[in-house]
Design a binder for these strands. Structure first.
Lengths: 247, 247
DNA sequence: CCTTGTGCGTACGCTATCGCACATAGTAAG
DNA sequence: CTTACTATGTGCGATAGCGTACGCACAAGG
């Protein structure tokens, strides 16, 4: 876990849109409490039913919230990256959720002790409003996941998934095996192979043993179902200032 | 819209678990603001993108939150009855959602002007905590809907849907055509016919032109996927006091 | 060099669900 | 009683996705 000094920390904070949008006042209060952690691929931040100990503000990590069924199969509920925070159940009052939070793409995050975020939330100020609005955008993403699962093909869902991931990463590369994508989407690995093969033949992506490069993002968006656009647009509506930063 | 006097009103309030759980203090503040409305089948409380004007606390109505796609097909995101409230986007700060709220089972509800619920929420007291916890249980329901859409058969989903509806109604009867159920589940009407036929042959339900009577609820729960139990258990965990009332 | 493991491609039969078409049965209005 | 409509039942071909099995290529470690 790399040590970073206060200056670096303040700089790195900007990578998370929620942290970046805080006023100087709140930022100063939060900064000393934030702990930077490096999150390796596959790390489980919490299991279903666990009492949450921290909230995580990813900088360049991506976290998947997924539900694991009794028979072991899984389905992604939503995805959180540098636009958001993992652990909304803490301030919503539940302390735990029925889903698992797992690192889908390795990277960094700032974490904050559960009690601390609750205290800050209970000041009923800027942070509370920000977190609530973010939570609503998360709700929208979950709703759209339900819709997409019902109505859209694996091809379309893969496009949505790639775009959601891409939005949360610095470049146009993602490190992700088809097996893992299949677990997220809740489909067979072979289904992902088929869908990815189509995209590759169309020259949209390049797939190489766990490394995906997106070559033609506009085309990807065209092939995608409406679900991606709905989620993105609603996030921009709910958290407009986040999209002024770093763009 | 039936007029009811203060005494009746106070009595009817008890039918909604959220309202029933309020302390005398808050209840006295809320009571004069509550307006009882009768909600006919199919009434749309709000459309996707509409600015919400009221929140609704159903007494014996059931409201479906569903997303309608560009091509007109739809999928239910969650269902709200006497255990909850319609319009969480108001206090979450969004003012609108991407879903439509439609009356799935006719009945009554108390409504509260948007500004009023926001003011009460911003007292940061009992009502806020209650609404946030309810919102988390709603999130759980939406997550499980996504999972169920991914992994479970129409048969299982119909069971889940019947149980969710049953929990929100006084008796063991529901008025609901297969066509409407199909719209909620986002499947073909014929699919519902098949699934309902199986349940009827097993003696679990009796279907008669839009009137369903559930004859063997334990059997229904046995046939259902885990999704129903997960949602129910989590709701009881998050809002325990609601289940002490009226049971 | 060889071995082993991992990631990906492909094939085959199976099932659930879809899209469509049409038949039947209650129900309501004239 | 007749007509029209609504709700339900049924059948059939098409298809997407599943379960399973197997083959191949590349990478890491000896």
């Amino acid at each position: 876990m790399p040590k970073i000094d206060a200056l670096e920390k303040s700089d790195a904070m900007q990578s998370n849109h929620l942290l970046a949008s805080l006023s100087d006042d709140v930022r100063e209060r939060v900064l000393p409490q934030l702990e930077y952690v490096s999150l390796p691929l596959g790390k489980v931040l919490y299991e279903s039913g666990d009492t949450l100990r921290y909230v995580y503000f990813p900088t360049d990590a991506i976290i998947s919230l997924l539900y694991v069924m009794e028979d072991g199969s899984s389905a992604e509920i939503s995805v959180v990256g540098n636009e958001g925070v993992v652990g909304v159940a803490l301030f919503m009052g539940g302390e735990s959720t029925t889903s698992r939070a797992i690192v889908q793409s390795a990277g960094g995050a700032f974490r904050l002790p559960g009690q601390w975020i609750k205290d800050e939330f209970n000041r009923h100020g800027e942070m509370m409003n920000l977190l609530l609005r973010y939570t609503q955008s998360l709700i929208t993403q979950m709703a759209q996941t339900a819709v997409c699962n019902r109505h859209h093909s694996i091809d379309q869902q893969l496009c949505r998934w790639l775009l959601l991931s891409l939005d949360r990463l610095p470049g146009n590369q993602l490190t992700m095996t088809q097996e893992l994508i299949a677990n997220m989407l809740g489909v067979r690995r072979e289904g992902v192979t088929q869908a990815a093969g189509k995209l590759q033949r169309l020259g949209i992506i390049n797939y190489n043993r766990g490394h995906i490069t997106v070559l033609d993002r506009p085309y990807l968006e065209k092939l995608c179902c409406e679900c991606y656009a709905v989620v993105k647009k609603e996030a921009e509506r709910l958290l407009p200032y986040l999209h002024r930063v770093n763009t």
